[in-house]
């Protein structure tokens, strides 16, 4: 089921849970912890999924947060515009959010795949561009108060669990299936591993990369929906820290920045590790700045562990030979 890296990661998670239980006992192993995690997890997770798709094709998406806020702002404005239509306006708003996400993704994808510009440069440019457009539309203010049907998406509960968690799970399952089982997903991994070889094996590389960025854009649109609904408002600077946190989660989850590696399962375990860790630090009344320092330490520790276990494995193989 799980590959070796995922098993190690799972071991890491179990270790952290045992640590938490040892330190805080029943306070840690409670329903409250689960609920706090369930509230925190979806937004980080969705952003990480969007990042992951582009990283697998050896790309990068620095504009992911700008895409999210832009989609949220335009969707919010349409919802206000069609306010008279009642709950139907919510449907229109969500469709607009998803399509703005897809459109911004398509812009990124077109520049990266057809013009063959480096993805880091492209998305850095579009990061500023989308942020600028969003800032220009809102003039820096927030857009507030939506139809109750819409806020249910962010704050409603099913079986005692928050609704965004279910959105996240559904997206994770769908994207996970696309990556692991569909032809499109397999092509993504092949392009990420070796682009030249993919071209010679007859894959329409440009089209696949383009589609990957659009898929990431749609996930960004879904994130916009969850984020706007949860806060019941949207502003340009919402979610600014998510990009770097998303990168931490993604690289902890074993997704290679150079492309071609990483699975949805690894990413899911990484998100859980980060949110368990945040909960433990919260219980320890840790200073919020030190908390972010510890995020960095986790990433470095993970690099150490990976390096040494890889070396040990190499030695083992050499001995066997």
């Amino acid at each position: 089921m799980l590959n070796t890296y995922e098993k190690k990661l799972l071991g890491f998670l179990v270790g952290i849970i045992i640590l938490g239980t040892a330190l805080f006992g029943s306070e840690f192993l409670s329903m409250k912890t689960l609920l706090i995690m369930a509230n925190q997890l979806p937004e980080y997770g969705l952003i990480s999924i969007a990042l992951m798709i582009t990283l697998i094709v050896a790309g990068m998406n620095l504009s992911i947060v700008s895409m999210t806020t832009l989609a949220g702002i335009i969707g919010a404005l349409t919802m206000h515009y069609f306010e008279g239509l009642g709950s139907f306006s919510v449907v229109i708003g969500i469709i607009v959010m998803l399509s703005v996400g897809a459109l911004t993704g398509a812009i990124n994808g077109a520049v990266v795949s057809f013009l063959e510009v480096s993805p880091i440069v492209t998305t850095l440019g579009t990061m500023m561009l989308f942020k600028g457009v969003a800032l220009n539309i809102t003039q820096g203010g927030a857009i507030r108060s939506f139809h109750p049907f819409f806020t249910y998406i962010g704050n409603g509960k099913i079986l005692g669990m928050p609704f965004p968690l279910f959105v996240f799970i559904v997206v994770a399952i769908i994207v996970g299936w696309i990556l692991s089982s569909s032809d499109f997903g397999k092509q993504l991994y092949r392009i990420g591993k070796n682009k030249e070889a993919a071209i010679y094996s007859g894959i329409n590389v440009k089209k696949v990369i383009f589609m990957a960025y659009i898929l990431a854009g749609i996930v960004a649109g879904i994130t916009a929906m969850v984020m706007t609904a949860r806060y019941n408002s949207i502003r340009v600077d919402y979610g600014e820290a998510y990009l770097l946190n998303g990168l931490v989660i993604v690289s902890l989850g074993g997704i290679d920045i150079n492309g071609g590696k990483g699975t949805m399962k690894g990413m899911l375990i990484a998100v859980t590790i980060i949110s368990v860790m945040l909960r433990i630090l919260n219980l320890a009344y840790m200073d919020s700045h030190l908390m972010s320092a510890i995020m960095g330490v986790i990433l470095l520790v993970n690099i150490f562990i990976q390096h040494y276990s890889n070396q040990r494995m190499k030695r083992k193989i050499e001995k066997e030979i």
Binding site: L244, H289, L290, A293, G296, V297, L300, I303
Partner: peptide, 14 residues
């Protein structure tokens, strides 16, 4: 990118 991301968090936090 990965290493400097980690150290960025550490430097800022500390």
């Amino acid at each position: 990118v990965v290493v400097t991301l980690a150290t960025m968090y550490i430097f800022y936090g500390v």
